[in-house]
Design a protein around this nucleic acid. Structure first.
Length: 344
DNA sequence: AACGCGGGGGA
DNA sequence: TCCCCAGCGTT
């Protein structure tokens, strides 16, 4: 009680003014929550604005082509969020008559909506008594109550979810949930934590025992895997090129890229030239755009990338105009190349 | 229970 | 360089 009361008092003074806080419309709350999964507000905010502008309601989103949705999502990462967002919009618009589910239990059935997001929407839109558990909440709870259970295990989830639910201010779940998250994001931060002016420090276990920089405990992630990507940038005399859409299970599903040759090790100019010659009759000229590998770092992969330019006379039917490149959703790695190469 | 999935930013 | 971020779906 003291804990939640202090948090909501703190929130009434320090609450950040954010666009999705001026509404309880489920569509907008849902949209903001999907965008903000594993994403800081500073990064997600312009995407939220762009989506609201392009798709003011769920039916507009449902009726958009997937390429347009992915294009708006471009650069935000975790693209399954965009695909699930689109699929759920169609489901809500056409199977649920445009109405979002109005309970935690039913929200959980939506694709892309897990425990956190269902709790957030249920509490914010319908004031259901469901405590949210995100990175901020883990941090605040583990520090204040001195819980050293690792947070990234299934046991850790259960322990903290129960603690979170216990602390929930059942009189105002919507306000409490946003208070504890804002508190974690701006006051009880991962680093440079502001204990000096913290309203909870007196009774905070981590503060009293000098464990603030130890909690929360998190099991270490695996090292990222090294991969070698060779993008084949075909270029015809009439300014056309090839683009392919990524399918299957890996990264960037649904996005477009220049034809990709992945190798076990770095490939030489000579070897690549032979491979390409085996696959086509037409004469071509091969040159390497970047002399040093471009290393694109993702949380789980390091992509050592070469962009090869293949000059040819002409390209077959399914090629596209260089001027159309900007219409396709592409990974940041590809976008940066297009910018740098400038197709002069 | 473990793993794969992006990209930006802070220290 | 490492860690973190309004997590989720699949295996």
């Amino acid at each position: 009680m003291v804990f939640s009361q202090t948090l909501t008092n703190w929130y009434s003074i320090n609450k950040r003014d954010l666009p999705w806080r001026n509404t309880v419309e489920p569509y907008r709350i849902w949209l903001s929550e999907i965008i903000l999964q594993q994403t800081q507000i500073k990064q997600g905010l312009p995407y939220y604005q762009a989506f609201v502008n392009a798709y003011p309601d769920v039916k507009k989103l449902a009726d958009a082509p997937q390429d347009h949705v992915l294009k708006l999502w471009q650069g935000l990462g975790y693209y399954s969020r965009a695909r699930n967002l689109h699929e759920t919009a169609k489901h809500v618009a056409y199977n649920l008559n445009g109405n979002f589910p109005d309970s935690y239990k039913d929200l959980l059935k939506l694709k892309g909506v897990g425990d956190y997001t269902a709790s957030a929407i249920a509490s914010i839109c319908y004031n259901e008594k469901k405590a949210v558990l995100d990175g901020n909440v883990y941090r605040v709870l583990s520090r204040y109550f001195g819980v050293d259970e690792p947070i990234n295990t299934s046991k850790g989830f259960k322990v903290f979810k129960a603690l979170a639910q216990e602390q929930l201010d059942s009189n105002n779940p919507a306000n409490y949930n946003q208070a504890i998250m804002d508190f974690g994001a701006t006051q009880c931060t991962p680093k440079k934590v502001q204990c000096n002016n913290c309203p909870l420090s007196e009774s905070c276990v981590a503060y009293r025992k000098d464990l603030v920089d130890v909690l929360p405990v998190k099991l270490k992630a695996k090292k990222p895997k090294k991969k070698y990507y060779n993008f084949l940038v075909y270029l015809s005399t009439d300014n056309k090129t090839f683009l392919e859409q990524r399918t299957g299970k890996g990264i960037w599903k649904g996005l477009y890229q220049f034809p990709l040759l992945e190798t076990e090790k770095p490939i030489t100019h000579t070897d690549l030239k032979k491979q390409i010659a085996n696959n086509q009759k037409q004469a071509f000229d091969l040159r390497l755009f970047n002399t040093k590998d471009i290393v694109h770092k993702l949380s789980h992969q390091h992509l050592h990338t070469k962009f090869w330019i293949i000059d040819v006379q002409e390209l077959s039917e399914n090629s596209i105009l260089i001027s159309e490149l900007k219409n396709y959703p592409v990974p940041v790695l590809i976008e940066k190349f297009i910018e740098a190469f400038n197709f002069s």
